[in-house]
Design a protein around this nucleic acid. Structure first.
Lengths: 112, 112
DNA sequence: GGTTGACACCTAGGAAAACATAGTGTAGGT
DNA sequence: ACCTACACTATGTTTTCCTAGGTGTCAACC
């Protein structure tokens, strides 16, 4: 799964993971990996800039905390972010359905 | 659906549309639009370069024809292209399922 | 006491894809 | 004469994701 695997749907994933409570970046990465059954094992260089971008856009709020000597930046969905999550999700459904429509009728190698 | 929505899945779509026979670029565009129920209304500047890229990579073969005074470049899946179609399709399924897994448990605004 | 590994963050830069834009030319209708 | 649909090409821009580094804490092990 190398190469750019996400292709524009990263925001959806990040917003989705944050929908059930505030989390810090590193935790977001591990949770994304677990919830996707290792399909999304994202490098930090992908996730951190994306979080910054979302925060800058007003979709997330962030605050610093220190837990056992380690500083963490904790992100939380804003109202705008929650709205965007819904929109992204609808867009994903349309997109996904459309791919399904195009793929429909394309035969698999073996199946008769 | 503005912004770049396709992001890496364009190849899958093009290969899929070509799976039932050779077609020229313009027809591919219209067929993609119809088969996706207007979801994928791709500009020429997106499709043509992608076709060239796929042809250059050996996934498609192309030949010029002239139909009623208009020259057409007709594309056809190669064996490599057909193989790639299968791979892209599997990758899409994994990807799509993984998104579904992450999205699972994220509540919709209204539904209880 | 030093090293390793998990934790936790950051940024600069590059590659590539998708798109915007503009151009070339034919055919057919009004 | 003009416009629309057809059909392809070339060039530039933007955005996104990733690579590849760097900083620092803590716990465990040797």
């Amino acid at each position: 799964m190398s190469g750019q695997a996400l292709k524009g749907h990263l925001d959806l994933l990040l917003l989705a993971v944050l929908s059930d409570g505030a989390k810090h970046g590193y935790l977001i990465i591990t949770e994304l990996r677990e919830r996707s059954d290792d399909e999304f094992d994202l490098p930090e260089g992908t996730v951190y800039p994306a979080l910054h971008r979302l925060a800058k856009g007003g979709y997330l709020s962030s605050e610093w905390t220190v837990v056992q000597g380690r500083r963490r930046r904790t992100y939380r969905l804003t109202d705008k972010g929650r709205g965007a999550l819904g929109e992204h999700r609808l867009a994903w459904q349309s997109f996904s359905d459309a791919i399904g429509s195009v793929l429909k009728g394309v035969p698999w190698p073996d199946t008769p």
